[in-house]
Amino acid sequence: MRTTRRIASVLAAVTLLLWTSRTAVSQPRLRVYEADCRIAVEGSRATAFCHNPYPDTDRVRLHIECERWWDIDVDSAPAEIGPAGYAELTDRCWKEIRAVWVSHQPVRNSPGR
């Protein structure tokens, strides 16, 4: 009787393990393609040159962190770059720039697009 309960509990554990691993593997993964961006800084002005070689649209924003505490940091308006598209984003601080980066947000293309 004890052996039967042990076998049943082991079978239940193996079944649960196989079921959870199968559902985890069958979940499709979302592939994220981001536009290629190059950043140039000249003095207090920063420019991002972005090209999207992928079939999905990418929404990009330029972010600038200014060096001086009184200088307001900058976040550009978002720009959508379609397939094979190009965008140039530029902005500036009053004085020196501490950091510059570009953020990406994938845009889901609707079937009618």
Score class of each variant (00 low, 15 high):
Thr3Glu: 13
Thr3Gly: 11
Thr4Leu: 15
Arg6Ser: 10
Arg6Cys: 10
Arg6Ala: 13
Ala8Asn: 07
Ala8Tyr: 06
Ser9Arg: 12
Leu11Lys: 04
Ala13Asn: 06
Ala13His: 05
Val14Ile: 15
Val14Cys: 13
Val14Tyr: 10
Thr15His: 06
Leu16Pro: 08
Leu18Gly: 15
Trp19Ala: 15
Ser21Leu: 13
Thr23Asn: 11
Thr23Trp: 10
Ala24Tyr: 09
Ala24Pro: 02
Val25Asp: 10
Ser26Glu: 13
Ser26Asp: 12
Ser26Lys: 12
Gln27Cys: 06
Gln27Tyr: 12
Pro28Ile: 08
Arg29Gln: 14
Leu30Thr: 14
Val32Thr: 13
Ala35Phe: 06
Asp36His: 14
Cys37Ser: 11
Ile39Asn: 10
Val41Tyr: 04
Glu42Lys: 14
Ser44Ala: 15
Cys50Pro: 04
Asn52Ser: 09
Asn52Gln: 08
Pro53Lys: 09
Pro53Leu: 06
Tyr54Phe: 15
Tyr54Glu: 11
Tyr54His: 15
Tyr54Cys: 09
Tyr54Gln: 13
Pro55Ala: 13
Thr57Val: 12
Arg59Ile: 03
His63Thr: 06
Ile64Pro: 00
Ile64Ser: 04
Glu65Phe: 03
Glu65Thr: 12
Cys66Leu: 03
Trp69Lys: 01
Trp70Phe: 12
Trp70Met: 05
Asp71Cys: 00
Ile72Arg: 09
Ile72Gln: 07
Asp73Trp: 00
Asp73Ala: 05
Val74Leu: 04
Val74Gln: 09
Asp75Cys: 01
Ala77Lys: 10
Ala77Phe: 07
Pro78Phe: 03
Ala79Lys: 09
Glu80Gln: 11
Pro83Asn: 07
Ala84Gln: 11
Ala84Phe: 05
Tyr86Met: 10
Tyr86Trp: 08
Leu89Pro: 01
Asp91Gln: 09
Asp91Gly: 12
Cys93Ile: 01
Cys93Thr: 01
Lys95Ser: 14
Ile97Lys: 01
Arg98Ser: 09
Arg98Thr: 00
Trp101Glu: 05
Trp101Val: 04
Trp101Ile: 02
Trp101Lys: 06
Ser103Lys: 00
Pro106Tyr: 01
Arg108Glu: 10
Arg108Gln: 10
Asn109Thr: 05
Asn109Gly: 14
Ser110Gln: 07
Pro111Gln: 04
Gly112Phe: 07
Gly112His: 08
Arg113Pro: 00
